[in-house]
Measured scan of single mutants.
Amino acid sequence: LGPKYVGLWDFKSRTDEELSFRAGDVFHVARKEEQWWWATLLDEAGGAVAQGYVPHNYLAERE
């Protein structure tokens, strides 16, 4: 699936296409579209919880 990303700060969605998340949440990014990335929010087991657009500057690649 490629690298995983972690949320740096809490983010509250403003549209139906955006995905709310908390700092520390883990994502798989499917598409990078300039300022907004289409991402899947993952649970602790790595299963998909939700999908939506997230601001790229709120995520960091997980080491």
Score class of each variant (00 low, 15 high):
residue 2 G to A: 13
residue 2 G to V: 14
residue 2 G to F: 14
residue 2 G to S: 13
residue 2 G to I: 14
residue 3 P to R: 10
residue 3 P to Q: 12
residue 3 P to W: 09
residue 4 K to G: 07
residue 5 Y to L: 02
residue 5 Y to A: 01
residue 6 V to H: 04
residue 6 V to D: 04
residue 7 G to Q: 03
residue 7 G to V: 08
residue 7 G to E: 02
residue 8 L to W: 06
residue 8 L to R: 07
residue 9 W to M: 10
residue 9 W to L: 09
residue 9 W to S: 06
residue 10 D to M: 06
residue 10 D to A: 06
residue 10 D to L: 12
residue 11 F to I: 00
residue 11 F to H: 07
residue 12 K to V: 15
residue 12 K to T: 15
residue 12 K to W: 12
residue 12 K to E: 14
residue 13 S to Y: 02
residue 13 S to D: 02
residue 14 R to G: 11
residue 14 R to F: 08
residue 14 R to S: 14
residue 14 R to K: 11
residue 14 R to M: 11
residue 14 R to E: 12
residue 15 T to K: 10
residue 16 D to N: 12
residue 16 D to S: 13
residue 16 D to Y: 07
residue 16 D to M: 09
residue 17 E to F: 13
residue 17 E to Y: 12
residue 17 E to M: 14
residue 17 E to A: 12
residue 18 E to S: 06
residue 18 E to Y: 13
residue 18 E to A: 09
residue 19 L to I: 11
residue 19 L to N: 00
residue 19 L to C: 04
residue 19 L to D: 01
residue 19 L to A: 01
residue 19 L to G: 01
residue 20 S to A: 05
residue 20 S to D: 07
residue 20 S to K: 03
residue 21 F to N: 00
residue 21 F to D: 00
residue 22 R to N: 11
residue 23 A to V: 07
residue 24 G to P: 02
residue 24 G to W: 04
residue 24 G to K: 03
residue 24 G to C: 08
residue 25 D to V: 06
residue 25 D to H: 04
residue 25 D to F: 07
residue 26 V to I: 14
residue 26 V to P: 02
residue 26 V to C: 08
residue 26 V to M: 13
residue 26 V to T: 11
residue 26 V to Q: 09
residue 27 F to W: 04
residue 27 F to Q: 00
residue 27 F to Y: 02
residue 27 F to M: 09
residue 28 H to W: 13
residue 28 H to G: 03
residue 28 H to D: 08
residue 28 H to L: 15
residue 28 H to F: 15
residue 29 V to K: 00
residue 29 V to S: 00
residue 29 V to T: 01
residue 29 V to G: 01
residue 30 A to K: 10
residue 30 A to N: 15
residue 30 A to L: 15
residue 30 A to R: 08
residue 30 A to H: 15
residue 30 A to D: 13
residue 30 A to Y: 13
residue 31 R to T: 07
residue 31 R to H: 09
residue 31 R to S: 07
residue 32 K to P: 04
residue 32 K to D: 04
residue 32 K to M: 09
residue 32 K to S: 07
residue 33 E to A: 08
residue 33 E to P: 02
residue 33 E to M: 09
residue 33 E to H: 10
residue 34 E to V: 10
residue 34 E to D: 13
residue 34 E to C: 15
residue 35 Q to H: 15
residue 35 Q to W: 13
residue 35 Q to N: 14
residue 35 Q to E: 13
residue 36 W to Q: 09
residue 36 W to D: 01
residue 36 W to Y: 12
residue 37 W to G: 00
residue 37 W to A: 03
residue 37 W to E: 00
residue 38 W to F: 12
residue 38 W to D: 00
residue 38 W to H: 03
residue 38 W to M: 05
residue 38 W to A: 00
residue 39 A to N: 00
residue 39 A to C: 08
residue 39 A to I: 04
residue 40 T to F: 13
residue 40 T to Y: 13
residue 40 T to H: 09
residue 40 T to E: 08
residue 40 T to G: 01
residue 40 T to K: 05
residue 41 L to G: 00
residue 41 L to I: 06
residue 41 L to T: 02
residue 41 L to A: 01
residue 42 L to W: 03
residue 44 E to V: 09
residue 44 E to M: 08
residue 44 E to D: 12
residue 45 A to P: 02
residue 45 A to S: 13
residue 45 A to M: 13
residue 46 G to I: 09
residue 46 G to W: 05
residue 46 G to D: 08
residue 46 G to T: 04
residue 47 G to T: 14
residue 48 A to I: 14
residue 48 A to F: 11
residue 49 V to T: 06
residue 49 V to A: 06
residue 49 V to P: 02
residue 50 A to P: 01
residue 50 A to D: 08
residue 51 Q to V: 11
residue 51 Q to E: 14
residue 51 Q to L: 05
residue 51 Q to I: 08
residue 51 Q to K: 06
residue 52 G to A: 03
residue 52 G to R: 03
residue 52 G to W: 07
residue 53 Y to C: 06
residue 53 Y to D: 00
residue 53 Y to T: 03
residue 54 V to M: 01
residue 54 V to G: 02
residue 54 V to K: 02
residue 55 P to V: 06
residue 55 P to M: 05
residue 55 P to K: 05
residue 55 P to N: 06
residue 56 H to A: 15
residue 56 H to G: 15
residue 56 H to I: 10
residue 57 N to Q: 09
residue 57 N to W: 14
residue 57 N to Y: 11
residue 58 Y to D: 01
residue 58 Y to S: 06
residue 58 Y to G: 05
residue 59 L to T: 03
residue 59 L to C: 04
residue 59 L to V: 04
residue 60 A to M: 12
residue 60 A to Y: 10
residue 61 E to L: 15
residue 61 E to H: 08
residue 61 E to F: 09
residue 61 E to A: 11
residue 62 R to W: 15
residue 62 R to P: 09
residue 62 R to E: 14
residue 63 E to D: 14
residue 63 E to R: 11
